[in-house]
């Protein structure tokens, strides 16, 4: 019994084709659309645009700052490398200098030692020569005495001069 008025209200078929409700729907739709449009264009969209722009800005800034820091790091690395190279070069000079000094000292000491050695050798040679000369003299004296004794023993009379000449001649030969 209640279906009759309802069917009358909604028409024979689709509620969508019930033209009596069109005015109502269009009226409220217009209000809803205008309200939405104003909410969006006055508040929401500018706000979101600002937020997005701000984010973009801070991202750009951060990237620039990062780029700066990176450049600084590269600079620091270069400075470090340079300091290292300088230190190395300095160390090399110091080493070369020390080497040269040591070599000079060494050379000096060597020269001194050489001189001392040659001096000693010369002295030694001189002593040897002396000793040899002494020995020669002694041999000559002994040979003369021996020769004179031998001649005497054989019954001859040894003339000193002849003996000395004979001994000298033998020793030379």
């Amino acid at each position: 019994m209640a279906t009759a008025p309802q069917e009358a209200a909604s028409g024979p078929g689709l509620p969508q084709l019930d033209f009596t409700t069109f005015g109502n729907q269009i009226f409220w739709l217009a209000i809803a659309l205008v309200a939405t449009y104003f909410i969006l264009s006055r508040i929401a969209l500018p706000r979101i645009a600002a937020v997005l722009a701000e984010r973009q800005g801070s991202i750009t800034n951060d990237l620039a700052a990062a780029e700066d820091l990176k450049a600084k790091a590269v600079e620091a690395e270069a400075a470090y490398n340079k300091a290292l190279a300088d230190a190395r070069a300095e160390a090399q000079t110091i080493i070369a200098q020390a080497k040269a000094e040591i070599k000079a000292d060494l050379d000096k000491a060597m020269a001194k030692a050489d001189a001392e050695i040659s001096a000693r050798a010369a002295e030694g040679e001189k002593k040897i020569a002396e000793i040899r000369a002494n020995a020669m003299e002694s041999v000559k004296a002994v040979a003369k005495d021996t020769a004179a004794e031998i001649v005497a023993a054989m019954g001859g009379k040894a003339d000193g001069r002849t003996v000395t000449a004979a001994v000298n001649a033998r020793m030379k030969g």
């Binding site: 009596t20 005015g23 109502n24 009226f27 409220w28 739709l29």
Partner: peptide, 9 residues
């Protein structure tokens, strides 16, 4: 349902 009626719409 008039034009200005408050409806489920």
């Amino acid at each position: 349902v008039g034009i200005f009626t408050l409806t489920n719409v």
